[in-house]
Write a protein that binds this DNA or RNA. Structure first.
Lengths: 198, 198
DNA sequence: TATCTTTGTGAGCGATCGTTCAACTATGGA
DNA sequence: TCCATAGTTGAACGATCGCTCACAAAGATA
């Protein structure tokens, strides 16, 4: 009964998270959102209640799809967890076609004082990345790829910080060579580097 | 000849950088600025041309005073450069009285797509920190505190990334213990840790 | 077909944005 | 003392903000 919804929720959220990642919460107006998603204000407010509601939905979708997807693909599933950690890092700046880099989580963490409703989602995403690192490190240690007395918890926390820092530097226009240098250093800091495995 | 200026430029810029650090460029309205600095719009526009001009002036002042001051105090001047690096890190989250943490550089780097005029200032500040790290590392190496074959340039880049990441996590409300863990890891990654020197 | 329900559309609301400017106030020199 | 100059003040401008709502369109039921 009633008219069918013409738009796909997942597509709208995907456009919204791209826009919010690029411009931030405050920098993305409802006119921008309408242009990016094709959603008119009326429909938006019927489904998402407010701009804030849309943002929280987009952040949740970002966590569930983008973050979890990358954690799974690079940290949980690869046969070689050490190589997976490396590719997790490089995938943050070797975006290929995508012209505007960065991470919605990082950006929202920084903006979180002006958008406090998003703090919980930020924490959730950061925790997911950190436990992904911890999982990969644990597996690498079990495989003998890393030292047996590696402190997994501390290393995971440090990798998360380095990863977030990388995403800040990406936004500041740091050249690729330096980002690679940082990635190499991150790998060296968790254990003996096997050369030429980039 | 003519009336004297009633306000101190340095004080106004100090208030402005606090406000911008807390709320971001877009999140700080001119009414907020007026309340924080005591500067009425007319005076502001006479001296700084625009909100953007004030922001750039505040970012420059932040670089010249806060960033350079901390680089000097922790990285360039201390007798023990390794301890200096550690205190540079801890000073980012052991703010004491200051209720709202974070770094104007980090925040502006993330916001830089919506405030492109600030990109140059961000780069300048980040470079100052990185070369401060490089200086401290070079001195530490010369003093025999760090391995003679330490790659200073690469380590400085990695410390900068870790530091920026720390400032993201601070904003996200990461507990102090974890921030200390990350700091410990940063120190361990540049050389053999001398225990209990926090 | 007529009716009911759900969704789409976009003009327009009050509020607030960054900015301007005319009136006002203080100061130094003639 | 009076004028020229520099600085202060805050009302108000047009633009844009997030948001609302009356109406149109589209499917389901009878």
């Amino acid at each position: 009964m009633g008219r069918r919804q013409l738009w796909d929720r997942a597509e709208v959220l995907a456009s919204a998270m791209r826009l919010f990642r690029h411009r931030g919460y405050l920098g993305a107006s409802l006119r921008d959102i309408e242009e990016a998603t094709g959603l008119h204000p009326g429909s938006l407010y019927r489904v998402f209640e407010s701009k804030d509601g849309l943002f929280r939905a987009a952040l949740d979708a970002y966590n569930d799809q983008v973050v979890q997807g990358r954690v799974r693909a690079h940290l949980l599933e690869p046969m070689d967890p050490v190589a997976g950690i490396r590719s997790f890092f490089t995938s943050a700046f070797e975006t290929g076609l995508d012209p505007d880099p960065g991470c919605l989580l990082t950006n929202t963490a920084v903006e979180s004082f002006t958008v406090p409703q998003a703090a919980a989602g930020v924490r959730r995403g950061l925790d997911a990345i950190e436990s992904g690192f911890a999982d990969a490190l644990t597996r690498a240690r079990a495989l003998g790829l890393l030292s047996a007395d590696l402190d997994v918890e501390a290393s995971a926390a440090r990798l998360l910080a380095l990863y977030q820092g990388l995403l800040v530097l990406v936004r500041a226009g740091t050249p690729l060579t330096k980002l690679h240098t940082i990635t190499d250093g991150a790998m060296a800091s968790i254990g003996p580097e096997k050369d030429g495995q980039r």
